[in-house]
Design a protein around this nucleic acid. Structure first.
Lengths: 227, 227
DNA sequence: CAACCTATATTCGTCTACGAATATACGGAC
DNA sequence: GTCCGTATATTCGTAGACGAATATAGGTTG
């Protein structure tokens, strides 16, 4: 039985990880994860949870230990991690930590299409983004700071928050830099962008053929196996 | 007609953006996007493309201009951007640029579960990640550098690559720092992590109740509307 | 004590994502 | 001229994601 496909789904991994602390029913898993703030780094949707647990059962990574019934609440199925499940959990975790995965952040997508808006408007939008980023950043940093200061939990148990914070900080800095370059005219090419919006076309020198050369230079041969 | 739901799908947005340059059939849209390297920042799957275009048609954001047939290739349906479509494109783009979206990077998820592996192994895994990140980084930076040096395309048209690069750089730096702190013992809490793997349990002082207080401090009230 | 809100626990139906299959044309190589 | 690899162009089936609905219990407020 079981298709033995690799468990790439983060929610599924967090189910395995939680069950490694002992048998539980799905709702309890979700409650524990939320309680520990893991829902900040892993998207937890009840709609997905039960599908995911069923699929893990089908693959033999968890087994139903039986159904308990407290009071007359809905029947609860308690699951237990199998040996296969623990192995799968550890393997996937090793993979996720040691191999950077290609992801597609929304902001990167937006930047790659942002040419359809006029440059001056974009400066305003970026400024708004910067404002919001700074607010988020201040809030998160303050909480984390207060936190380590009071020594409520050692830093290592909040390491994913520190990562998130570092990335948010980096984005903030980058956006600030971009705004500056757009504003003071340092960023080369803005004149073509503007011209395109006024005349409806790019100057001939940046033709399709140039795009093609550019693509090869930037992206060519980048999908290497790298083992 | 049309459910008028907001088009959040990046692939759908890139379809609208491409059609803003003129009527095209789906395959041509994908070809153009790939040709321009947009597939580096937007996930393009043929399987999704046609579904997405159909859905856009259903919402009235694009219309079929008719079916052309070159030679005896499969029949191609050419689509055109509607006025609604252009408006939707611009609105979504404005939103994506000005409002940071909550995303769930895989590495952050992995970090939040990494406690199930023993600390010494994790140091090794992180070192491997660092190695790979540095390779990727060097490759991307070299290409981008060579590129702006030769002035093949102005920087503004590669802005999403610069963003990706900056984020990758930030992650690299962060991982390097984490490895250092883990190695030289600066990071507080590693002793509990190690103890947990040896004895199977955490010292009492970091009990569930402490977790609860921590959660409130770190994550509490963080979902603010912020307009 | 009725009305109401919140927490517990799961199911359902729909919509989306996408790998794989399909089918044709075209340009070499032999 | 036929074989084959590659580019063109789309459809299909299935697996996964998830909002919303369902159903019960327990606690609170007036």
């Amino acid at each position: 039985m079981a298709r033995q496909r690799r468990v790439t789904n983060p929610l599924a991994l967090s189910v395995l990880a939680t069950l490694s602390e002992g048998p539980m029913h799905p709702y309890e898993i979700a409650r524990l994860l939320r309680h520990r703030g893991k829902d900040q780094s892993i998207k937890i949707r009840y709609g997905s949870l039960y599908t995911v647990v069923q699929s893990l059962e089908g693959q033999g990574f968890v087994t139903a230990e039986g159904t308990a019934r407290a009071g007359r609440r809905p029947e609860r199925t308690v699951y237990r991690l199998t040996d296969d499940g623990r192995e799968e959990l550890e393997d996937r975790l090793r993979e996720l930590v040691s191999e950077p995965a290609k992801e597609y952040p929304l902001f990167e997508a937006a930047l790659s299409l942002v040419g359809v808006l006029p440059p001056d408007e974009v400066i305003g939008l970026l400024t708004e983004r910067l404002r919001r980023l700074e607010v988020e950043l201040a809030r998160t940093r303050a909480a984390l700071h207060e936190w380590t200061a009071e020594q409520l939990l050692p830093r290592i148990f909040l390491i994913e928050s520190e990562y998130g914070l570092a990335m948010k900080q980096a984005e903030t800095d980058w956006v600030r830099g971009l705004i500056r370059e757009l504003t003071d005219g340092t960023l080369e090419g803005v004149e073509y962008w503007r011209a395109w919006h006024e005349t409806g076309k790019l100057p001939q020198e940046w033709s399709e053929r140039d795009w093609a050369r550019a693509d090869r230079a930037i992206h060519g041969e980048s999908e290497v196996d790298e083992t």
